[in-house]
């Protein structure tokens, strides 16, 4: 903080509470969010004109369904990224959670609720280990979660015997994603919305959220203020892991199977969704609503490209470019904030 030269005329004591500057920074945050929202609208309009199959109920419902998985992953990752960290293990972690759910329900034939909770806790355990490695062993988040990404990937393959586990024998499991508690709205989407509200409350109304922002703003200062930052980092990564676990259950239910090969690539889509939604990779800044919009942008884009019969290879190129643009906007925002 000392480093930034103060360019405006300072009058201390005579005190104006600087309404102008806080107003502009507030406005800037709004613009960022509405920018993401505008992008979403533009994409929707564009694909609607590009393909008559796009704006159909079955397709929209498909988009929402695929948003559910990326969205749930992104919600958990939002916390991690606001602390200034990163979690690369969410994609394969989700796969491992799905495989474990399969082991619990299909191989061990445990009751549905137990198996589901077991799957979610698998994610939580991975998150806890990530948090422990980062907070206690002080490994850089990038390395710690990269290692966890490989470990989860390997374990998913080993435990499943490199074969999908089918849930067809488990009554009611599929309904977790594809059933309808609210008519017309697939349960997976409902879960996403419920978790989004939960994440919003956690982030803005509880100590967990406050310390998430505090750690991302200035970890050392937070620690010196008497906050046990190590404990809170473990909690935050564990929360992210629990979200990953839920995503594992949801994707298992949606595919009615645990696919051990699946999962890589999801982490980058989720991280991209978070960044597109205005959460800063440098930490300290972010919102759940933004992440939700970001996740929708990602899945609308993927779905739209697919429906326009663009080859998968090119889809990857487009997504890559979108991630570049999102990170660039983030960098631009940082620069503007710094000047």
């Amino acid at each position: 903080m000392n480093a930034t030269p103060v360019t405006d005329q300072t009058r201390v004591g005579g005190g104006t509470p600087e309404p102008r500057r806080s107003a502009t920074s507030f406005l800037r945050a709004q613009i960022q969010q509405s920018l993401a929202f505008a992008t979403l609208v533009v994409l929707l309009v564009f694909f609607s004109f590009a393909s008559s199959n796009f704006f159909t109920w079955s397709n929209i419902s498909g988009i929402l369904l695929s948003t559910a998985v990326i969205g749930i992953l992104a919600l958990g990752t939002t916390f991690v990224i606001i602390t200034g960290g990163i979690d690369l293990s969410i994609g394969t972690g989700m796969t491992l959670a799905a495989v474990m759910t399969g082991i619990f329900l299909v191989n061990l034939e445990l009751p549905l609720m137990v198996g589901v909770i077991g799957g979610i806790l698998t994610g939580g355990l991975m998150g806890f280990i990530n948090g422990f490695n980062i907070a206690i062993l002080r490994l850089p988040p990038f390395i710690a979660t990269l290692a966890m990404m490989l470990i989860a990937q390997g374990l998913a393959l080993v435990i499943s015997g490199v074969r999908p586990i089918y849930f067809s024998s488990v009554v009611g499991f599929k309904d977790i994603a594809l059933g309808f508690v609210i008519p017309g709205l697939p349960n997976a989407v409902l879960i996403l919305f419920v978790l989004a509200i939960l994440a919003y409350v956690l982030l803005s109304k509880t100590l967990l959220g406050r310390y998430t922002f505090a750690i991302g703003s200035n970890e050392e200062a937070t620690r010196l203020s008497g906050v046990d930052t190590r404990k809170w980092k473990i909690v935050i990564y564990t929360v992210a892991g629990l979200f990953t676990g839920v995503a594992g259950v949801v994707i298992g239910a949606r595919l009615d199977s645990a696919q051990p090969q699946l999962g890589t690539g999801y982490e980058l889509q989720a991280i991209a969704a978070v960044i597109i939604g205005g959460t800063s990779l440098l930490g300290g800044r972010g919102s759940i609503l933004g992440t939700l919009i970001g996740a929708l942008i990602m899945s609308v884009l993927i779905n739209g490209l697919r429906i326009m019969s663009i080859q998968t290879e090119w889809q990857n190129v487009v997504i890559g470019v979108v991630i570049l643009i999102a990170v660039f906007t983030d960098a631009l925002r940082q620069r503007r904030a710094a000047s």
Partner: peptide, 29 residues
Amino acid sequence: IHQEMNLMAHLTIAQNIFIGREPREGLFL
């Protein structure tokens, strides 16, 4: 008061002053 500025830039003044001692009601701030 440390030599280096030790504030959380993205939090408000009030949130900074009472960091670690937030008034709470159960889980909620």
